[in-house]
Design a protein around this nucleic acid. Structure first.
Lengths: 123, 123
DNA sequence: CTAAGACCTGACACTGACGTTAGATGCAAG
DNA sequence: CTTGCATCTAACGTCAGTGTCAGGTCTTAG
């Protein structure tokens, strides 16, 4: 499939796909005329990348741990494996931060709830 | 206290404090010469703002829900209250995203662990 | 073959929370 | 009073992911 179809099926913009390739996150074969061609497997790959983006990883970080995705059995991914673990831990810490912040908002909501009966009931 | 002391005690940069004021998140009194003065209460206020930033809220969003912090009893904070609830829910969704991404990383880690005995043992 | 639409590269624009710099002023200690 | 550090305003720099535009090429339907 060409880039427009992949963009539609993966739910990202064409621009983003070209950027991902520029950053070494995805690859493509080229037609004689120079247009990018993709396989069905690329849909899932893009989805995976999106999840990591959503988790706050930078494109550089994602690129560094992709060897672990490609070939989990290679020993050349020792650095990548460490980064994998570090990022997992970073996500865990971030979750704790979010839970803390959410608790703060919950306290605020409670403090305000009495004055907003209808909204409070809607929850 | 002056801005440098607040920055040190709150653990943020002087630049950030001036930016927060510019965005309407904090206020200050001024000396005759124009320098900003703060109270002890501002330390906690800045810490609270930091928590919201860490939770992914923008300065504009924080500014919009500050009325709820200032005066939980005023009815003029109806909009702010709604935003409060929306942001709480957004944080919850974000936590779910992070947990999903972390699970994906955990699966990758498992798939790679066999080939990295020492690192696996360190966990 | 031709028109239309998808695609190409390259480049600039934007957002947001700051960092950094420049040049001027405030303020406390000797 | 002076020295020197803290602070002031104003403005530009940064980073990352993406939007958008320009000007040209590929592909496919008719």
């Amino acid at each position: 499939m060409r880039i427009g179809e992949l963009a539609a099926r993966a739910g990202v913009s064409v621009r983003s796909l070209r950027y991902y390739e520029e950053q070494g996150l995805i690859t493509s074969t080229r037609s004689a005329g120079g247009q990018r061609h993709y396989t069905d497997g690329d849909i899932e790959r893009v989805a995976f990348i999106q999840r990591l983006y959503a988790a706050g990883l930078s494109s550089r970080t994602i690129a560094e741990l992709l060897p672990c995705v490609e070939s989990p059995s290679e020993q050349n991914s020792a650095e990548a494996f460490e980064r994998l673990v570090r990022e997992r831990d970073r996500i865990s810490r971030h979750v704790e931060e979010l839970v803390t912040a959410r608790a703060a908002l919950d306290r605020l909501i409670d403090a305000n709830r009495a004055h907003h009966g209808r909204l409070a009931a809607a929850r």
